[in-house]
Simulated assay, not measured.
Amino acid sequence: MRHPERRLLISVDMERYSRRSNVQQYEAQRHFRELLHEAADAVGLDRVAWMTQQAGDGELAIVPRDVSESRVIGRFVPELNRRLRHHNSSRLPAARIRLRVAVHQGLVHLDGANGFPGNAVVFVCRLCDAEPVKKALAAFPDAGVALVVSTEIFRDVVTEYPEEMRPERFVRIEVAHPDKEFREDAWLCVVDEDLAAVTVPGTLASAGQEGAAQTAEKPVEAAEAEPASSRLEHGGIRTGDIRVKGQNAIGPGAAAIGSVGRDANVGTRRDDPR
């Protein structure tokens, strides 16, 4: 047994494949492979170098080490979506090809006797088969791809390249397979569609909602971490062990709080000859 390698994993599954006739399945498989190869070629990816495990209605792909994650998510997936939309535009619903695509990364054995052993492989396949992903794709009849990525991929890739990845279009979902004792969070988008316009079961929050929540918390956190001398800036002035309060620290009502632990009036009255 060779040592496992850390690789990018892509699981792809075709919507409503089992409902097709034999001839429709045959044609769908042919178009499926053609579209994947054409999309990869269009963005400079060599699909021939990908290690794949075929499943009739989809595939598991192990991407070479030198392939950029951002190129796969930010360019390959949108190009695949564009080609699928064009392909489907001239076909009846029963003949259309719409895909669920899951992306994750982790350790995988490349020399398995009957596939690719590794928990990362199981993980990415669970994401691809998640109910929220199926529901999201079904909610947009003209869409080509529903993309789901693991939390690690969303954090390390999607949010780091916002101009290419559009993280604001993702929503956080719960992927649950109770019969397989699997429950994890992931991030979902339907390429070129607005998930905020529909209700998807299993949705926990959008990227925008989480970002707003984090922003709202920052002032509190910043205030707690701020030095005491800086926090007094809005309530007075500190000089050494003395803090002077009041309007500009001058005038009626000004007070000095010293290290002796008591307050002393340090203001001057207007009728005071001093």
Score class of each variant (00 low, 15 high):
residue 7 R to T: 04
residue 7 R to K: 12
residue 8 L to H: 11
residue 8 L to Q: 11
residue 10 I to V: 15
residue 14 M to N: 05
residue 20 R to G: 06
residue 22 N to E: 12
residue 24 Q to I: 10
residue 24 Q to L: 10
residue 26 Y to R: 13
residue 27 E to Q: 11
residue 28 A to M: 05
residue 30 R to C: 05
residue 32 F to G: 02
residue 34 E to Y: 10
residue 36 L to Q: 07
residue 39 A to W: 00
residue 44 G to Q: 12
residue 52 T to L: 07
residue 53 Q to T: 07
residue 57 D to R: 03
residue 57 D to A: 05
residue 59 E to M: 14
residue 63 V to Q: 00
residue 68 S to G: 06
residue 68 S to I: 09
residue 68 S to R: 13
residue 68 S to L: 14
residue 69 E to A: 15
residue 73 I to F: 02
residue 74 G to Y: 04
residue 75 R to T: 11
residue 75 R to V: 03
residue 82 R to Y: 10
residue 83 R to D: 10
residue 84 L to R: 04
residue 90 S to D: 10
residue 91 R to G: 04
residue 93 P to R: 09
residue 93 P to E: 10
residue 95 A to E: 15
residue 95 A to R: 13
residue 100 R to I: 14
residue 103 V to W: 01
residue 104 H to C: 06
residue 107 L to A: 11
residue 107 L to N: 08
residue 112 G to W: 03
residue 115 G to W: 09
residue 116 F to E: 03
residue 118 G to Y: 01
residue 121 V to C: 03
residue 123 F to W: 02
residue 124 V to T: 06
residue 125 C to Q: 14
residue 126 R to W: 01
residue 128 C to A: 06
residue 135 K to C: 01
residue 136 A to L: 04
residue 140 F to W: 05
residue 141 P to E: 09
residue 142 D to R: 10
residue 144 G to T: 14
residue 144 G to L: 09
residue 145 V to Q: 03
residue 146 A to Y: 03
residue 147 L to R: 00
residue 153 I to W: 04
residue 153 I to S: 03
residue 154 F to D: 03
residue 162 P to D: 07
residue 165 M to Q: 14
residue 169 R to D: 15
residue 171 V to C: 12
residue 173 I to V: 15
residue 173 I to T: 02
residue 173 I to D: 01
residue 175 V to N: 05
residue 175 V to C: 11
residue 176 A to G: 07
residue 176 A to H: 15
residue 179 D to H: 12
residue 179 D to A: 15
residue 181 E to Q: 14
residue 185 D to E: 13
residue 186 A to K: 07
residue 186 A to L: 08
residue 186 A to W: 06
residue 186 A to T: 05
residue 188 L to W: 02
residue 189 C to E: 15
residue 189 C to S: 14
residue 190 V to Y: 01
residue 191 V to S: 02
residue 192 D to T: 12
residue 193 E to I: 04
residue 193 E to H: 13
residue 194 D to A: 08
residue 195 L to D: 03
residue 195 L to R: 00
residue 197 A to S: 15
residue 198 V to M: 01
residue 200 V to L: 04
residue 200 V to Q: 00
residue 201 P to C: 04
residue 204 L to W: 03
residue 209 Q to Y: 09
residue 212 A to S: 13
residue 213 A to F: 11
residue 216 A to V: 12
residue 216 A to Y: 10
residue 220 V to K: 08
residue 220 V to L: 11
residue 223 A to R: 13
residue 225 A to T: 10
residue 228 A to N: 09
residue 232 L to W: 15
residue 234 H to R: 09
residue 234 H to E: 13
residue 236 G to W: 01
residue 238 R to W: 07
residue 240 G to S: 06
residue 241 D to R: 09
residue 244 V to I: 08
residue 249 A to F: 01
residue 250 I to G: 00
residue 251 G to F: 00
residue 252 P to M: 06
residue 254 A to F: 05
residue 254 A to P: 01
residue 255 A to N: 09
residue 255 A to K: 14
residue 257 I to P: 01
residue 257 I to M: 08
residue 262 R to S: 10
residue 262 R to F: 10
residue 263 D to I: 15
residue 265 N to D: 15
residue 266 V to H: 01
residue 266 V to M: 02
residue 270 R to F: 15
